[in-house]
Structures are given as C-alpha cells and as structure tokens.
C-alpha cells in the first residue's frame, strides 16, 4: 500500500510540473492557436537563471531561504522577459500568416534558444543546488513523500488557485477569455488584443519558470536540452486534457504523470514514454478533442 501511495504521489508531483508547463501551451493555444514549440525553452531558461543566481548569491554568502526566493523571483522575471521578446520577434509579425509558418517560426526559436544557452553556458549537465531544504517534521513521512515533492505539490496548488481567480475575476482575465473566444470581436469592444497576447505569454512563462526551478532542484541536474523534452511532455498533457482548456491541461498533466509513474513502478522504466504516448493515442481515438475538450461541431 505504501508503495502504491509513493507511486501515486510521485505521479502527482510529476503531473504538477507538467501542469505548470502545460499551462503556457494551453493558454497560448487558446488565444492565438499556435503550438508554441519554444515554450519548453522558457522553462529551461528559467532553470538556468535560477542556477546562475543561486550560485552567485551562495558565493556572496546569502542564507538558503533568501537564495531560494531571489532565485525563484529572478527566474520568473527573466522567463517572462524572454517570452515577451520571443512573442514580439517570432510570432507577432506572423499573426496573418498561415499557421504552419508560425509553427516553423516557433521551431526556429526553440532551436535558437537551445543553442544560445548551449554556447553561452555549457553542453554538460550542471548540478543544481538543493534550494528546498528537508524539513524535520516531514521525516516520518519521508518514505512516502519527500519535502521537495510536498513543496512542489503545494506551490502548484497555490499557483493554480491564483491563476483561476485571476482569470475568473480580474479585468485582464476577462479580456483574455474574450480574446480567446473571438479576437476580432474582442478588439471591437476595446480590448487591446496585442497586450492580451503578450500578457498570456508572460503568465505562461511565469508558470513554466516556477516549474523549472522546482523540478531542477528536485532532480538536481540541468542542461540546455531539458526544456525540449519537458516541453513535448507538457504539450502531450495539454492535448490529452483538451488543448485550450486550463482545467483540461491540469487534468491531462496529472493523468500523464500517473501513467508514467505507474508504468515505471509496476512494468518497466524502459517503456515509460511508450506507455505515455500509447495512452495519448488511445484517449484521442476515443475522445478526439481530449478529455475535457469540447469537440468542435461541424458548422455548415
């Protein structure tokens, strides 16, 4: 039973990270119908910024808590700035272009950012400092859930709650929802669509950066390529849940996290990804628009 619980919580942790990244995919897709291939790189840049900031601050003699907070905050700020710039350069000029062109541009951006970090930093795996300490009161439960996993779960939950409130009740949130329904109509009612789009990228980037810092300190290693792999997984999660839908992305991420973790725990870790993808294919065959996605009715 403990083994089951451990795997269950492990899957939940994985799922939370996927969810933080998948949010960016699903929100951007909801608004401009673009698979932002470079979103994973934002997460990677977040992790790198945190690593750099944490190392510098540790050398300067800051204590653990302030290092953690400052690293997290700066990672979020930088990720947001990167996402903002990325949108302005690679996507904004392509609003009217065919969707495939925007996708290729996103792929180009992904390639560019990966190699930028590779060249400016290193291609080796870098050890990531343990920013989250082990709390003593967690000791009795350590065989089921580690402190880090608990922190990841709680942070994700808080972030999701804030985001939900934000989208439901604020002016910007309403503007975002309106824009995702109908860009032209939203513009006609006086919403600055370009601002909303920039903002969507920024929110997505913030979530991804939080995810990046959390997972990096959980796993303890980063390199320039982590963004791509995590990006693909998160994208799968977003599609699984029904792309464009925020609760869908979260649910899809948990489902994906559990699938992987149970397959690793009970079958074989070699085929973890195979099961994840097979599961995706199966779900989409029976529900072509994802778990929570509304199937597009053929309006004739």
């Amino acid at each position: 039973m403990n083994y089951f619980l451990e795997i269950f919580l492990g899957g939940l942790t994985r799922g939370s990270i996927y969810a933080l990244i998948a949010l960016g995919y699903t929100m951007v897709y909801g608004i401009i119908e673009l698979i932002n291939f470079a979103h994973g790189e934002i997460y990677m840049i977040g992790a790198f910024t945190a690593l750099i900031v944490a190392s510098v601050l540790t050398l300067l003699g800051f204590n653990t808590l302030s290092v953690f907070i400052l690293a997290l905050v700066l990672a979020v700020i930088y990720s947001c700035c990167y996402a903002f710039t990325m949108e302005k350069i690679a996507y904004k000029p392509l609003r009217q272009a065919p969707r495939l062109s925007a996708l290729i541009s996103a792929i180009g951006m992904s390639l560019f950012l990966q190699n930028y970090v590779l060249l400016a930093q290193t291609s080796d795996f870098l050890p990531f400092p343990r920013l989250i300490p082990d709390f003593d009161f967690m000791e009795p439960y350590a065989h089921i859930i580690t402190t880090q996993e608990a922190v990841i779960l709680i942070t994700t939950a808080i972030f999701m709650t804030i985001l939900t409130i934000f989208i439901k009740f604020t002016r910007m949130g309403k503007a975002m929802r309106a824009t995702s329904q109908d860009k032209v109509m939203a513009a006609l009612t006086g919403i600055d669509v370009n601002r909303v789009i920039s903002f969507t990228f920024i929110v997505g980037a913030a979530a991804a950066a939080v995810g990046g810092v959390l997972i990096a300190s959980h796993i303890g290693m980063i390199n320039f390529y982590i963004g791509f792999i995590a990006g693909i997984k998160a994208f799968v999660a977003a599609v699984l849940g029904g792309i464009g839908s925020i609760p869908g992305a979260v649910l899809g991420s948990f489902v994906l996290g559990w699938t992987e973790s149970f397959c690793t725990g009970y079958v074989s870790s070699d085929y973890e990804d195979v099961f994840a993808f097979l599961f995706l294919v199966l779900i989409l065959i029976f529900r072509p628009a994802g778990i929570l996605g509304r199937s597009e009715s053929n309006k004739v």
Binding site: P93, L94, I104, S105, G108, M109, L111, F112
Partner: peptide, 14 residues
C-alpha cells in the same frame, strides 16, 4: 550553425 539555422527559420517565416 544550429543557432544560425534557428535564426534563419524565424527570419524566413517572418
């Protein structure tokens, strides 16, 4: 080269 390649992709599409 991969950096340039990525940049060219964006540039061409834009």
């Amino acid at each position: 080269r991969l950096l340039i390649f990525g940049a060219i992709l964006i540039f061409m599409m834009v």
